[in-house]
């Protein structure tokens, strides 16, 4: 385990407890996001995955525990962290265009009261180009498909130019082209030494898309490199004995083993 103060570790969570009124949602969670890795947080519905991210960012109050970003409290590390909320949390009928939404990622650097200028809009357009949405910049956001909306959110995070990206279910109900685009962006981020932590639902793709995985069910059941941690045994501990999920997991583990062998033979 990393020391909580070490400044090269993007995110360290220790003994985190979060409760909604009297219902405990996250219980004594310990979590580390190693630098330069793509990390998945997986677990059953209601396991507290999104809650853990939101609590770490100070969006919901924590009952106890500590959170450090690059060794600092969030307020001091804000400029190095980008957050992508779940797509459904915002109103997509809101009167803004795609480029306006992406430019929101630049507001912190602008500061209070200063208006968005041509420079910010150009940066926002560049970010949209990276997710393949150059032609959609001035579209009103309700005229975009679900996948395109998710890519707008991703572009906004890219515009923030952070070192750590926290994404809440970026792959939830998106089309194949968007899934591809997100994976490409994640890998490009990793190649530049950035870290991304994604809440993820689709177990079979975990070994393909991510380097590290944290299995969460109220507490962190297990975490570490995918090939060591993403095992049938750990998944059973996380998900309980639900048959279909376990079958899915077993297939995923098998696929991971095969692809690891494949890589080893290359």
């Amino acid at each position: 385990m990393n020391s909580i103060e070490s400044s090269h570790v993007p995110l360290v969570i220790r003994d985190l407890n979060v409760a909604y009124q009297t219902k405990v949602v996250v219980w004594d969670a310990d979590f580390d996001a190693p630098p330069g890795k793509l990390v998945a947080i997986v677990g059953p519905n209601g396991a507290g995955k999104s809650t853990m991210l939101k609590a770490a960012l100070g969006l919901i109050p924590i009952a106890s525990g500590s959170v450090r970003f690059f060794g600092l409290p969030y307020e001091k590390a804000r400029h190095r962290v980008a957050y992508v909320p779940q797509r459904e949390t915002v109103d997509w009928d809101f009167p803004v265009s795609a480029v306006d939404v992406v430019a929101m990622g630049l507001y912190r650097r602008l500061g209070w009261c200063l208006p968005v200028r041509r420079k910010e809009l150009d940066q926002a357009r560049a970010a949209l180009a990276k997710v393949g949405l150059s032609d959609y910049a001035s579209r009103q956001i309700s005229q975009l498909s679900g996948g395109q909306q998710q890519r707008v959110f991703l572009a906004r995070a890219l515009a923030q130019d952070a070192d750590l990206y926290l994404m809440d279910e970026p792959f939830a109900s998106v089309d194949a082209a968007t899934e591809r685009a997100i994976v490409d962006v994640l890998r490009e981020l990793r190649s530049r030494g950035k870290t991304a932590v994604c809440v993820h639902h689709d177990l079979p793709t975990v070994p393909e898309y991510f380097d590290h995985v944290a299995l969460l069910n109220m507490r962190v059941v297990s975490q570490g490199p995918v090939d060591k941690t993403f095992t049938a045994e750990n998944l059973r501990k996380t998900y309980g004995a639900r048959l279909t999920l376990l079958e899915e997991a077993a297939q995923a583990v098998e696929r991971a083993r095969v692809s690891a062998q494949h890589r080893a033979t290359l």
Binding site: K54, L57, G58, L59, E75, R78, V81, Y83, P85, T89, V90, D91, F94, V96, D100, V101, M104, G105, Y107, R108, L110, W112, C113, L114, P115, V116, R156
Partner: peptide
């Protein structure tokens, strides 16, 4: 003066708060 902040907080309060607004 607060056009940008009002728009951000109305559209995506979570992002607004993480950005320091």
């Amino acid at each position: 003066l607060f056009y940008k902040e009002l728009r951000l907080a109305a559209f995506d309060p979570a992002l607004a708060t993480t950005l320091g607004f």
